[in-house]
Design a protein around this nucleic acid. Structure first.
Lengths: 342, 342
DNA sequence: ATGAAAGCGCTAACAC
DNA sequence: GTGTTAGCGCTTTCAT
């Protein structure tokens, strides 16, 4: 019936040494004789003592805790980020406080308060949109480093790690061009998406770079509802029958485009004809899921470096905590683990 | 240049009162005169003081922190669970420590150590498979409540919250039967999956209950690779052309079955003919993604109560922490938010 | 209504 | 090598 938690004092008493000694063997600092160390370790074992980190860190000024604010863990991009962060942080023998802020600034501010009160050493924010000046100056004042792990270029004045959407779109477009396509459309995504804007930038500039004109009618937005996508793509292919390739904004779009084209009587191929169907239109999509599940439908995918964004953000926050005191950086991650099916 | 963090002492000094007073206004306990309270609050504001929770809780024996151990945040089920947990816990003005343990017991044990050292009030474990007797007795000894939030019946001796897989399969099978199907197959999932085993139980018993025989050849396992699923379903439909409906183990399987059947020349319908195609074979899948993206392909889906598992686990752990001292329970959550497309 | 002081569990000088 | 002791920032009796 151990009602009270066993403390370092209990151990010291039981082992017949001082608390300082116990503390020293615990941290491996100071020169403790093997004999004493053994004795202490034995009683620690016997009593089932576990060191209280909170108390330990209360003395110093570090907590070894990193705060993480994620809008919504349910979204694949964010869960990947969180996964990357937690994995790296734990490897450093630190630990992460997870908070979810949803879509509201107010809720974000509450998360922030929480994390600061709990004395985190640094904060990783999974979205730039809440990092307004007030927040930043508050953070600066309390000397807590922040880094932003985002989908797109959502903020400035802080370290930000994000996918290189422009480059990804460039690679995608280039891939299609090099496979002989000249009429390439961009399909899907909502018009207020920053990620999409960046991708469209890459798409357009690549077309231009290759001397291909682009037409704004070839850029079609859509929500992710399968039915809408199917309808839009069907109509589109009818209107622009010369378009021979489509860059799809995400997995849902790619799948919708696939089904729509199929329905319309098109046949689909990957750019290189590895397909159950004959070539007629090429599909290339950005994959935000990263699952293998869909990799065998005849669509090439470029995968987002989502988890890597988390990992790099974690690396960066550790650097900042260790006093790496340079101006804020933007780190663009290539769709590095992209699997262009070929 | 605020180098040192501003503490309660600073506030007290600045406001010309004692630390005790500041502490009292902070916690709203004790009778403090409005005047003093105002003064204190003003200086708190002025100095930008934030209370250090770690220190605050050091005195008491609670930390207001809940530990969460998730095998892999990247898997949709687990990210949903984590999301549900964090959302509820934060609503209680508590906070969650997130750890990921992967697939190894050793790594799990490390996570556990970590959480215990950090003094969490309770632990939610996202998988039962690591909760062996040793772990449980350790936890019992340190008097830290645990609850398991799992995919299936993975452990005993602790509170466990999980989806009612048997019921879900029963509902699925029943739905198909009531729509006139008599030859129903179960497709997908790996043979060592506990979830699948439970679902198959529900599937079989429902068939029996309705006086329909079942054949073990109609239960086909598969990994989630699209190509494999497509091949298997194609072969299967050829061998058993009388099978008119398929219960699919997950979204990938459903999609694969859809594409496979399509390829083979079958036409697909939902059970009730809302489809772009004519009826020939009915597909019904368990959805582990919960995304709307696929809802418009002609497959009915039953969605897992993944996030709800997290929420209920959070509720349960709070109960346990508050000393709700009853024997461990199993809570089965219905596929409550299921959307049978109809 | 407010202050003084004793801890919470631990670490880090500093002594011996 | 090991013990003594003074805090870390806060809460909480117990006085006043």
């Amino acid at each position: 019936m151990t009602v009270r938690k066993v403390t370092i004092t209990d151990v010291a008493q039981e082992a017949g040494v001082s608390v300082a000694t116990v503390s020293l063997v615990l941290s491996g600092k100071g020169r403790i004789s093997q004999k004493t160390a053994d004795k202490v370790n034995a009683t620690i074992e016997a009593l089932g003592y576990v060191r209280n980190q909170q108390a330990a860190f209360l003395r110093g000024n570090v907590s070894n805790v990193i705060g993480l604010i994620i809008p919504d863990l349910t979204e694949p991009f964010y869960s990947e980020v969180a996964s990357g962060v937690s994995q790296f942080i734990e490897k450093q023998n630190k630990i992460v406080f997870l908070t979810q802020c949803g879509k509201s600034q107010k809720s974000f501010d509450l998360c922030l308060d929480s994390l600061i009160r709990y004395g985190v050493d640094g904060i990783i924010v999974g979205s730039g949109i809440f990092l307004n000046n007030e927040v930043l100056s508050r953070l600066a004042h309390s000397r807590i480093p922040v880094v932003c792990a985002a989908r797109a270029s959502e903020c400035s004045g802080v370290d930000i790690i994000r996918p290189d959407n422009t480059l990804a779109a460039k690679i995608a477009t280039e891939h299609l061009i090099k496979n002989g396509h000249h009429q390439i459309a961009y399909f899907g995504g909502e018009s207020d998406s920053l990620t999409r804007a960046e991708r469209i930038g890459g798409y357009c500039s690549t077309l231009i770079q290759y001397g291909l004109p682009f037409r704004t009618e070839w850029i079609v937005d859509s929500d992710d509802k399968q039915q809408n996508i199917i309808e839009k793509i069907t109509e589109f292919l009818q209107q622009f029958p010369k378009v021979s390739a489509v860059v799809c904004h995400n997995t849902a779009t790619a799948l919708g485009a696939y089904l729509g084209a199929l329905k319309r009587g098109n046949t689909i191929s990957t750019v290189d004809n590895h397909s159950y169907f004959n070539q007629e239109i090429s599909l290339l999509g950005f994959d935000n899921i990263g699952s293998e599940a869909l990799y065998d439908i005849p669509v090439s995918f470029i995968t987002q470096p989502s988890k890597e964004v988390g990992t790099q953000a974690a690396i960066k926050i550790i650097e900042r905590i260790n006093g790496y005191d340079t101006p804020p950086q933007s780190v663009l991650l290539p769709a590095g683990f992209s699997q262009l099916k070929s």
